[in-house]
Computed example of a mutant assay.
Amino acid sequence: MLIREFVEADWAQVWPIIREIARAQDTFCYDPDLTPEQARGLWLETAPGRTVVAVDDDGRVLGTAKSGPNRPGPGAHISTASFMVAADARGRGVGAALCEDALRWARDEGYAGMQFNAVVESNHSAIRLYERLGFTIIGTVPGAFADPELGRIGLHVMHCPF
């Protein structure tokens, strides 16, 4: 698996991943009726941020990530990132590789840490991964996420200092 910068030709494979995850309504606060144009605006980062893809040996996009400053101005020294993995590529280390890459990039860029603003509390595999990579839950907003099966559940704020 190779993680590389997103190029325009990747969109045809990235969009279905975003669409599937948005429609599932169980991990991202994205409108399930998101259009491709809206998704591009939400997912494709511009400098100083970046968007990457994880591809297999055949060039198939297995997952994607975006990262950059968490907030502008006085908050720009803390980074953030988001990750999406194709359903049939989950459990193969794609998410871990994307997260490790985002952490490495943020450290190299001089950020003081990384913050995740909205990790759905039922996303146990992601939470375990993030904790293994040095993140801690610093707070939970109760009932902030409307899961289609679980109802209103919490969103964790997670932080990893560098």
Rank of each mutant, 00 (worst) to 15 (best):
M114E: 02
D108G: 07
E45T: 01
R132H: 06
E100F: 00
S82Q: 05
Y130K: 03
C99W: 01
S79C: 03
Q38E: 11
E8M: 00
Q115H: 08
Q115E: 12
A24M: 14
M1P: 04
H77S: 06
V7D: 15
N70M: 13
D57V: 11
E149I: 13
M158S: 01
V53W: 04
V120C: 13
S67P: 00
P74M: 06
N123H: 12
W11V: 05
T64A: 12
D31F: 07
D101N: 09
D57F: 02
A12S: 15
I21E: 15
A12D: 15
F28I: 07
A54F: 08
S79K: 00
G75H: 09
S82I: 00
N70W: 10
V141Y: 07
P161T: 03
R132P: 01
F135D: 08
F28L: 14
G63T: 07
E109S: 05
G139H: 03
L42W: 14
E149S: 11
L150H: 14
M84D: 00
V53M: 07
S79R: 00
R128I: 04
A112N: 15
A65T: 08
D58W: 06
I17G: 03
P48K: 04
D26N: 14
L129V: 09
R107V: 15
D108R: 09
A24E: 14
I21C: 13
G68A: 00
R19T: 10
P16N: 07
W43Y: 03
P148E: 06
G73E: 02
R40C: 11
H156R: 10
F6P: 02
F83T: 11
V119L: 04
V52H: 05
V85F: 01
Y30C: 12
P74C: 10
V53C: 07
L62Q: 10
E100G: 15
V53Y: 06
V14E: 06
D31T: 10
E121Y: 09
I127A: 11
D101I: 05
D101G: 12
E149T: 13
Q13K: 06
D58Y: 08
A126K: 08
